[in-house]
Design a protein around this nucleic acid. Structure first.
Lengths: 189, 189, 189, 189
DNA sequence: AACTAACCGAGACGGTACGTCCGGTCTTATT
DNA sequence: AATAAGACCGGACGTACCGTCTCGGTTAGTT
């Protein structure tokens, strides 16, 4: 007698439908029908279908979060960090969900808050660790902080995912990391 | 005797509604009602409300496109380039429209194509000019090309607009430009 | 606390609109708007506006069905039978609805079936009773049956209603009944 | 160089579409498209699609009108008269068109007038001739007139066509004629 | 031979209603 | 008390035709 908690079934179905049809094709009615749950039950737990999609997203993220290990040098660690994002976003599911949610962040502040806390903040924390170690090693300038670093490292990745549609290759990840390091290493002019 | 063409009225109304309620609150029915045009007329010209919103966006972009003037040095020109984007995106209207459209780019290839051709490609062309001049001046490495430069310069801007919600300040623009130049100047290691 | 069931409100409004504007002017949207019911609710119960109009028609018919009483002689009973139809059809409402539905019977078999079962079959049953009594009394030939009798008695009435537009008077009803009786009495030649 | 007059092409196409899809599926746009004529041209000649359908109907009727020949006895002539109607209405085309038009007669007086003048009045004239001859022969009561005779003879036919859906057989036609003659022969009681 | 007026095709337009999809709320009965 | 089931209101969707309306391009007929 599995899954006494309907939330599991709901999230699992949500991910299935997201994978099959994207955020656009995700409907609360569809989730209810396939998971054998009443619409009411869904609305009791999530405020909207975006909220539900985000919950599913976080559900994945939870499983994939990884402590950034000490790889010896900052470049390797940053590259691992960026490549992990590249890989996750390239898996059609996560990429599609993020892509599908972005527009909603603008009109739903509550959703935006959750997204930033549950998704972005974790990445920032990881990046902070890496940079701290880099400063200690003397590989990175002392004033390097995750704030701007996130913009410089993740921005280009998301730009390709969300806007230009250009491919997220390993070479691209290296160029992004190297560009970042060029500035983070050099003393300001 | 202006606006014999209903397209004008439609686009104008579309911009009004976008400004007031965002892409989310934009409805074809609403545009038809306010602009005094039949829904059919709208559908005769645009395939969907996203298509319409994009048209309105391009309509603004058309009016704002600017030849990048020679400012003497590359940093100034890049900063002007980035700041122009920052200003445009900060004007609530354009920012909201772009934000509202992003999710649709994933599910509507035709829309994505148009967006890239009408919006991104123009920026790329401008950037190309700047970089070319920079190479000639010897301020930029000879292999600098707009492709990756767009990712590095615009990525961080859009990351803040679309995801982190952090403010688009002039200081931020400078940091982005300087970071880019640090890499584009230095010879590869 | 009446009309917990939206069907009541819908049918009542349908009759109002039919009376005011005829079948032609009956729209599902209009019924929804005036009855304070969602269009979906109407479509959940009736397949089309014709189906709805027919339901309203049957709704009236239900209320007006009457056991044919024994009036002593067949002519009186037939005349009462015919006159009842004449009166009902002359009431603008029923006449208009029937008139408005006829054309749809040709293209909507399901509608035709319902119309015949719910409306015509009832009349046929009444007529059967009358003829049966007439046979027992010896006033009508033993082989008189409702099948052809319906054609002969109602045909002329509907012909005037639907096609010629000639008035449905009492004298006309008498002529129809007498003509029928002339044949139904006389032995076949 | 055929059909200099577009009316021909329009009516021909109208009949085709009526035959294929019934009055319901007849659209002015469809006629225009198939006949290679502009909608304007159609509206210049007919007020509505019903008007057009009726014109097509009359067009057929014109070709089929027939002088009722003297067959020697009234019964034969009446039967021929009724059977001709039966045959015409049974041809799916005319039957469908009439069926499709009936409902419009109620809401379009102009259409009704034309229908009665162009279609019914011709039949009445034919019937008049037959009855006149019948009176002269002494086969029919002197006060028999087409007015009520049309109701009694055509009513049952149209009742089956329009309402009951029962088949229009030759036997049925005979029963109708004989019933009429029973009354038209007998002196009033 | 040029001019004009009628008529034509093409098709855009405002408008009405269609029937559908889903969102999110609410009620009822079950367990 | 939480649930499945599902009816309900509401808003918008995109479509189909309606009947009206320019708009140019023949084609006749007139001068």
């Amino acid at each position: 007698m599995p899954s006494i908690d309907p939330s599991d079934a709901i999230l699992r179905t949500t991910l299935e439908l997201l994978a099959e049809r994207g955020v656009h094709g995700l409907t609360v009615e569809g989730v209810a029908a396939r998971s054998g749950v009443a619409k009411t039950t869904i609305y009791r737990r999530w405020r909207s279908k975006q909220d539900l999609a985000l919950a599913a997203l976080v559900d994945i993220a939870d499983r994939q979060t990884q402590r950034p290990r000490d790889l010896g040098d900052t470049r390797s660690e940053l590259l691992a960090f960026v490549m992990r994002l590249v890989r996750v976003l390239s898996s059609s599911l996560v990429g599609r969900v993020v892509h599908g949610l972005v527009s909603e962040l603008d009109s739903d502040p509550e959703l935006a808050r959750t997204f930033r806390e549950q998704v972005l903040a974790r990445r920032t924390a990881e990046l902070d660790h890496i940079l701290e170690r880099g400063v200690q090693r003397g590989e990175v300038r002392a004033d390097a902080r995750a704030g701007i670093a996130m913009d410089l490292l993740l921005g280009p990745i998301y730009y390709r995912l969300l806007l230009s549609g250009a491919p997220l290759t390993r070479q691209f990840a290296e160029e992004v990391v190297d560009s970042f390091l060029a500035a983070a290493t050099k003393s300001p002019e």
